[in-house]
Design a protein around this nucleic acid. Sequence first.
DNA 1: TATTGTTATACTCTATAACTATA
DNA 2: TATAGTTATAGAGTATAACAATA
Lengths: 142, 142
Amino acid sequence: MGTIAGTSVDTDVVVLLARASGAALRTANAALEPLGLRARHYAALTIAAESGGVAQRQIGALLGLDPSAVVTLVDDLEGRGLVQRLPDPDDRRARLVTATADGIRLLERAGDVAREVRQAALGALSPAERETFVALLRRVVG
Amino acid sequence: MGTIAGTSVDTDVVVLLARASGAALRTANAALEPLGLRARHYAALTIAAESGGVAQRQIGALLGLDPSAVVTLVDDLEGRGLVQRLPDPDDRRARLVTATADGIRLLERAGDVAREVRQAALGALSPAERETFVALLRRVVG
DNA sequence: TATTGTTATACTCTATAACTATA
DNA sequence: TATAGTTATAGAGTATAACAATA
């Protein structure tokens, strides 16, 4: 489990992940605040824009969010006019979340911010190490 | 930012970290539940046991927790008789959190559980990849 | 003046159950 | 029967400000 040596601890993977995630989220939320977005909204808006229309269920699956949390998330974005819920012609239960022109414009403005956030999150690593880290992290998430 | 290809997304690092952390925490909390512990309590108890007495401030620094959250955490552990708050002879503001005999006994019982959790969290990676990943993750956290 | 621990408080996040309308 | 979305709600986590005791 780890032993204390001086002031440093051979910390648990779970703790390390929680710390890295918390720090990255705080950085992202602070950086996106001037645009009125949180990391979660930015991610969902990106998915909506790039997909050209996704079911909420899929947003939840991609972002690891509960369906009920996706409702709140899309409500926020729709309330700001950044996305629309359109009927899915293939499945009348589902509603396709699509980015509006305003949403796409905001995403473009947020591009630089997002780049800075990614850099800050992995600032301690070299470019090659970042690639390695993200590749492994993606496999960890599955 | 990433482009959609089929059903997979070149997801943001922030999202990946949040997903990995969430999944690891859920696994850890579920596995430790029979022992009446959450991941956070387990981590703090480990630090207390291995250090032989830590200031709450340091627990917060190691675990990335707000000082006020550490109060609640140590209250829980103390209420269950797993740690004690002893006066620090070198600084009368601080209180040294030390594991009790019960706390150490519980930690020993939790050892196997912790091993399983770490394995589950990084189950998709080979042993060598796990080492690489944890080393990089530790540098990301700083 | 700054720091440790503490309390109170507000806010966000997460998770579940129950419901509807479809499939 | 199962699934997509929704609502309500409860519980956990996070963050801030203010305070007493001590440095």
